[in-house]
Design a protein around this nucleic acid. Structure first.
Lengths: 266, 266
DNA sequence: ACCGTTGTTACGTCCACCGATACGAAAAGG
DNA sequence: CCTTTTCGTATCGGTGGACGTAACAACGGT
């Protein structure tokens, strides 16, 4: 409901079911729908996913059998089950969650100061995902799907992580770097040079490297070990964040990120 | 870690893979392990589950591909991914979660007053699951696995829900009532009479109806519509909660449950 | 009474999943 | 240092489980 003024940008690789269990894929999507909506129907779900009614029904049934879904009285629609909320315990377990709570006020200040969308990305193993976004003031903004892994070599936040690996002597992934736009850095040598620059200057930009017309500037948030565990980013049209990022904007982000890092130690 | 002095009682039906997708079952167990432990290994998981290493690996791989799991640097063990914590957001969305926060102080008071274990059960569609437990003072206590559906006809909390259905003209489930002990009520007529009694007196007991030697006393928590959405229970050995529940104990539970209900409206 | 829904079920076909087996690497142990 | 174990990963046929098709019963609206 409600008009979506922002451009929905979803970075996602296609199926590529190489040696995986396809059944799980659908089950997970069903779980997400279950979590997102208060209640869902079999036909509705099957149409949304483009699958068969019977298939979705079978998956839904096993979810019910395992307590991850329940069907409302009178054998009507399905909704989230008890064990699904049991999974939520993991959230409070991760030390990351505290970062989100801690960072929010500083993020809001940054948003109000700059007027741009502000994102907080977290490091999950060797992937990066945005976990918190604050919409900017622009009429037409840019948003990313939260909780989805994003490419490392073509995003401001991702390059910060890669630069940290480089600094710690961790080998960069040797899989080929996918080209998203004609600005995407795909050459290993060029990327390494860029990462050294990122590491030295303490922030990263990524003008039109993932999506044309979109720019982002990001600064690292470090834990008490000095490891990069999160990134603070602003993201907007390249019209508002020029390819050569303005000095005061970069300083604001670096300063805020550093401030959050300091709050983490205490 | 830490000695478990309490008797672990898990009420759970066996596989019964009738028309379900078996692959999902394993995937869910993997997800739970991922959520519970900080990191897990393929072999470790396969042994715990009694499955093949290859199978677990394939499942883990698809979970990684979908962002529900990540592997730590250096291709070592696996841990929870970003989308897994995304699912957790639903938990705080459910209106139920507010009940838990609201009820906790009252539950602690009840636990200290009575000395028994106190449980909070929530209604999920047409099932009931314990979501919060407070250990009692007894050296040997009784605990139930949280976030798992429990039978309705043989538990104090379950009978409260059934009684509410009866009052609202909702048909009782016609599936046969499973017999757990020789005290379990399995006859429809006897059960209806019991439910009317429960409804009238405003609380329910279930002495040795699910597990021998265990008794429970429960009172309903209602939302602003008057519908039963949760149950407050105490649970212990029948040695400490006699078959004929003492008057003051029943009053304490009814009073506390009513207090929580009133707090819910405000 | 006729539609168009909904959730549910049965059944036969096929391919996705499985188990066995093996490989390279890294840790353990002597 | 070599051996041994254990880890995650990869490959490869065979098979049975998951799939799609189609029909079912139960509602709700026109």
């Amino acid at each position: 409901m409600g008009r979506e003024l922002s451009t929905q940008i979803v970075v996602e690789s296609e199926p590529s079911n190489s040696g995986g269990v396809m059944a799980i894929q659908l089950a997970l999507e069903v779980l997400e729908s279950l979590a997102k909506h208060d209640s869902v129907g079999v036909t509705e779900l099957s149409r949304a996913r483009g699958s068969t009614k019977a298939r979705v029904y079978r998956h839904l049934r096993t979810l019910v059998d395992n307590g991850y879904a329940v069907q409302d009285l009178g054998s009507e629609r399905y909704s989230a089950g008890p064990r699904l909320v049991a999974l939520s315990r993991v959230a409070s377990l991760t030390p990351f969650e505290s970062v989100v709570r801690l960072a929010r006020p500083a993020m809001m200040r940054l948003r109000d100061d700059t007027g741009h969308s502000v994102n907080l990305s977290l490091v999950y193993g060797e992937t990066v995902a945005i976990v918190e976004t604050l919409q900017g003031n622009a009429l037409i903004g840019v948003v990313m799907r939260t909780h989805t892994s994003m490419p490392l070599h073509s995003t401001a936040a991702g390059k910060l992580l890669l630069a940290d690996w480089l600094a710690n002597g961790i080998a960069l992934p040797d899989r080929p770097y996918e080209r998203f736009t004609n600005h995407t850095i795909t050459d290993t040598v060029v990327l390494r040079r860029e990462l050294y620059k990122v590491q030295e200057q303490g922030w990263a930009g990524a003008p039109e490297e993932t999506v044309l017309g979109v720019n982002a500037v990001s600064a690292p948030i470090r834990d008490h070990h000095g490891d990069v565990i999160a990134m603070l980013s602003i993201m907007s049209s390249i019209q508002f964040i020029p390819r050569i990022a303005p000095r005061e904007l970069v300083d604001a982000i670096k300063c805020t990120a550093h401030e959050i890092s300091r709050a983490l130690i205490l």
